[in-house]
Design a protein around this nucleic acid. Sequence first.
DNA 1: CCCCTAAGTTCGGAAACCGAACCCTAACTG
DNA 2: CAGTTAGGGTTCGGTTTCCGAACTTAGGGG
Lengths: 147, 147
Amino acid sequence: MSRVKVVDELCTLSLPAALLGERWTLLLLRQAFLGTRRFEDFQSAMDISRSVLTERLATFVDEGILRRVPYKDSRTRYEYRLTEKGLDLYPVLMALRKWGDKWMAPADGTSFDLHHKDCGGDVDVRVECTTCGEDLGARDVRVTRLR
Amino acid sequence: MSRVKVVDELCTLSLPAALLGERWTLLLLRQAFLGTRRFEDFQSAMDISRSVLTERLATFVDEGILRRVPYKDSRTRYEYRLTEKGLDLYPVLMALRKWGDKWMAPADGTSFDLHHKDCGGDVDVRVECTTCGEDLGARDVRVTRLR
DNA sequence: CCCCTAAGTTCGGAAACCGAACCCTAACTG
DNA sequence: CAGTTAGGGTTCGGTTTCCGAACTTAGGGG
């Protein structure tokens, strides 16, 4: 997080970029969205070292992205669940996945599918203009620096 | 990249997540989208060490996200420009920014604004169902593991 | 000539990461 | 009721990666 320079670089894009650009955080998030909740499960699914996992989970918890809740396995243990703030990162992962589908497809396709629960339709991510409704790419947008 | 386990974890989400979850890559990308193209400019804007910058630029180049093109400053130098593949990452950054606006706003607002060049409208990112057109959140989507 | 510039490269010390072993504690097991 | 198991960590020594500062390279300008 201290990788964010405190000049004009401190903005609402660089802050999340610094957080999620930390090693393992995106993969941890992906795992959480796939339903993983317990320490052991994260560890074995991602093959991350236990000490680093502890640390990442802790920063997610105090960023308010995950919360640590007790559960009973005939005894009190803890599991990690996405908060509203965490669930709100869904579009980021969907955008990543869409890009991955287009540009990094590993020949044998993806290992899971996504569908709208209600109607069974496919999931898509779009950048659009709230005024005219058009689809926007990087070249259609003007950046204005403030201050 | 070797952080991607080669079991079922090799998918079109984990591959990009591993790449962009590398330290500095998201911030480098942001900088590129803001128009930065030269080594020195990346270096001073991001405050990254020169050796790591060299390395990150190189992996972006051989991932095909940036390309290294000569320019003349009365002499041949090189600059880094986004490719189509790179420009296609725009939705990822927009999704990050939207999330940042909502959840990490640094009190004094963002340091830059974005507007549709043609109509001046605001930029938005949406996850939607291609069949019914509804907006989708993480809870509206069913994940199906394949194989 | 000497210095400047852009884009790197080199190198020694510091920080982060890794794997493996160890810890703690309540609950089964025999 | 002693011993084992399970989940969720902590500790520790060795390895990678990162950092900052200095050095390199090559053409142009004064």
